[in-house]
Nucleic acid binder design. Structure first.
Lengths: 346, 346
DNA sequence: GTGAAAGCGCTAACAC
DNA sequence: GTGTTAGCGCTTTCAC
């Protein structure tokens, strides 16, 4: 064993050793038809003996495209956020599909507020000749970026762009529907004064959660009480602040639906500081199912998006080639845990 | 605007347009010397007009190496763990260095328990001709994997291998020292019965934390009390279980030092269930500074490894070329928060 | 079924 | 300072 002293074997070396032409070797390596079984075996043996590994650069150059998938997502200024779970789950799904299809994953967080992101993105995509690009939310709903990618002509898929999309491919989840389902859950527990803490609205898909909340109220015959809707910014602290506001109301809500789990955690914290018990006095729900949701006390009722599966699907669409599916929806799941319970009777 | 209808400009097109040879264009693009200012400008203008972007595949083929850095880490079976924060922070550091050096980052989680990881890794590294590889813990202390990478002859850096390393480069932190410092902190608060909950010992660097604990006891003139050392497995639940055991003791510890934050969170949970108040009756500390550490109540005293900076440094070492630094240590930081306080007097 | 030869777009010696 | 030319290791077209 030890260091690789001699130079690496090329397709020529293999061809020579197997007494065939390089084209035949190429056929074997790429699993193309029209190779006699016996020839194939000879070649395979030569490959094994020589430890031959095709050179991706050469292959990419000849093929005019790489075996790289780019995963592009928002680079949070404060990286250290629960958003990390979000990102990891997307990566995980993308990686699954990549492995299966013999591709590799390039990650490329970027700051959409920066000048020249579009150009940088184009540069990356074209220079590296990415085989495809997955655009994560909230970038997936930013026209400038989408356009920049379109201009490269490289296949791409958007994740949860948060609105209906004209021509290009995307995979989403049923944010709106599932949010309404959450209201159903609350309503079925007897809640009538259900508050909502909204999130960051540059993230269109997060906006859908509010629409779902309203739809849920509507279909349960509940009316929207303006003072029960308060704006958050997706952060723990904004959730806590909103909770203090809601709990200070003369007519308190009996349930709070938060547009994400971080804010829900903030609500839980604020409530417990005020001696308000969950879920006895107030029910709390989130959205995202972050790791902490299962470690909180009480464990948080929330909604889980199939992020990994969505991204996996996205990469597969990319590598499929056929423009068959333009849009795919993978439903989210209600995770009913301990932070929701029957409405208190006053 | 719009789609790229015509074929992409190559270096020839640029050369022709600027009335120079391709070599000159190459010089300009690669910022090589020996180009007259005026010539350079002509070329740059042609590049701009033609929207020329060098093709990485071609460049990589000619240079015999890519512009890709591989970040290789353990692919947890249950991915959905606080470890996600760990991974994200390493990625962030690696990305910072990559961007600065005009490289791209390939992520490659892998399962070291799987057969053939070594071969797969070699295959990736050689096929893609990675410019360099960063190996994260605990993979960085697995001989089989390290060897596989060595055999490719590709430059690599190990992160926190957890032990002194012979010849190859690595960047680590002062796990042991900082753990001893944590004991100093506890001792200075008057604690004498300090428990330790150990972690997963396939992760050598985590093992160092225990050594640091002992060193801390020693230098504070405290003796190691065997019944106060209990084995955990890095999980929240194992922390909670250990806590129940420790709190059941006739002579309880007044402080618990956990080898990671998840276990510390478990301890906090178990203690509060048992009505033991933190830090009044017992102090708790962790290691890692996961996101939750700052959102717990009380906020957790812990240790923060400079993971991002470590990985950033690693990538820079890779791209530096000169084998100057073989080993680099970036110190961790004590984060003293609310979960530690003066030892109770009985 | 198999092979010969012409690229793919760039870098790197070396010549001028 | 600048240009010529020969690769880099593969895929692809087309002939056999």
């Amino acid at each position: 064993m030890g260091q690789q002293t001699t130079t690496r074997a090329t397709i020529f070396d293999v061809a020579q050793r197997a007494s065939v032409s390089i084209k035949t070797v190429s056929r074997v390596v790429n699993r193309e038809p029209n190779v006699r079984d016996k020839t194939r075996q000879k070649v395979e043996q030569a490959i094994a003996e020589l430890q031959y590994r095709p050179d991706s650069s050469a292959r990419n150059l000849a093929r005019q495209r790489s075996h790289l998938i780019g995963l592009i997502y928002d680079d949070p200024a404060a990286y250290e956020l629960p958003s990390s779970g979000y990102i990891i789950r997307m990566q995980q799904g993308a990686l699954r599909a990549c492995r299966e299809r013999m591709h590799e994953l390039l990650i490329h967080p970027c700051n959409p507020r920066e000048r020249g992101v579009g150009a940088t993105l184009r540069n990356l995509i074209e220079s590296a000749r990415l085989a495809g690009v997955v655009l994560a939310p909230p970038l997936s709903n930013m026209t400038r970026l989408v356009r920049a990618i379109q201009e490269t002509g490289t296949p791409f898929v958007r994740i949860s762009p948060g609105l209906k999309v004209r021509n290009d491919r995307c995979v989403a989840t049923n944010d709106l529907e599932i949010s309404a389902d959450m209201v159903d859950h609350l309503a079925s527990l007897g809640h009538e004064r259900i508050a909502f803490i909204s999130g960051d609205d540059t993230h269109l898909a997060v906006g859908n959660r509010y629409d779902g909340y309203r739809e849920g109220l509507r279909r349960n015959g509940l009316k929207l009480i303006p003072e029960l809707v308060v704006a958050g910014d997706n952060s723990f602290d904004s959730g806590a602040a909103a909770a203090r506001q809601l709990l200070g109301l003369d007519a308190r809500p009996t349930a709070v639906f938060c547009a994400n789990d971080d804010m829900a955690a903030g609500v839980v914290r604020a409530a417990s500081k005020l001696g308000v018990s969950i879920p006895d006095q107030i029910s709390v729900t989130g959205f995202d199912d972050i790791v902490m949701a299962r470690q909180m006390d009480p464990r948080l009722t929330t909604i889980r998006q199939p992020l990994a599966r969505m991204t996996e699907r996205a990469v597969k669409m990319l590598l499929q080639g056929d423009g068959s599916d333009l849009f795919e929806c993978i439903p989210a799941e209600l995770k009913i845990r301990e932070s929701t319970g029957p409405a208190p009777r006053y």
